[in-house]
Amino acid sequence: MSFDRKVVYNVANLARIRVAEENIDNLATELSAIIKWVEQLNEVDTYTVQAMNNVTNSTLPQRNDSVLDGGYPKDVLANAPESVDDYFTVPKVVE
């Protein structure tokens, strides 16, 4: 599978990155090369192999479902580009 203009446009949309029209062809070439290169994995027979998603083979630890920390709205909002009172703000979502 290679990247054509349409695939680049769709993936960029999924990733919420606006791609400039003049960069799409270049990106299609670069990303196709990368995908073609990683496809050499198809040479490996993995039919009976388990996928690894945790290198330490441990199960995630459990803890009591209780509040351990928190209550600092000012800290949480300190880096917000825009906020009102104790809330983050975004452009209007619901019409």
Binding site: V7, L14, A15, I17, L31, I34
Partner: peptide, 19 residues
Amino acid sequence: RAKGFGDEVQRRILVGTYV
């Protein structure tokens, strides 16, 4: 995200999103 991320980061996000 277009303005904030550089070329290599955008490239990897796109590859990651694709796979």
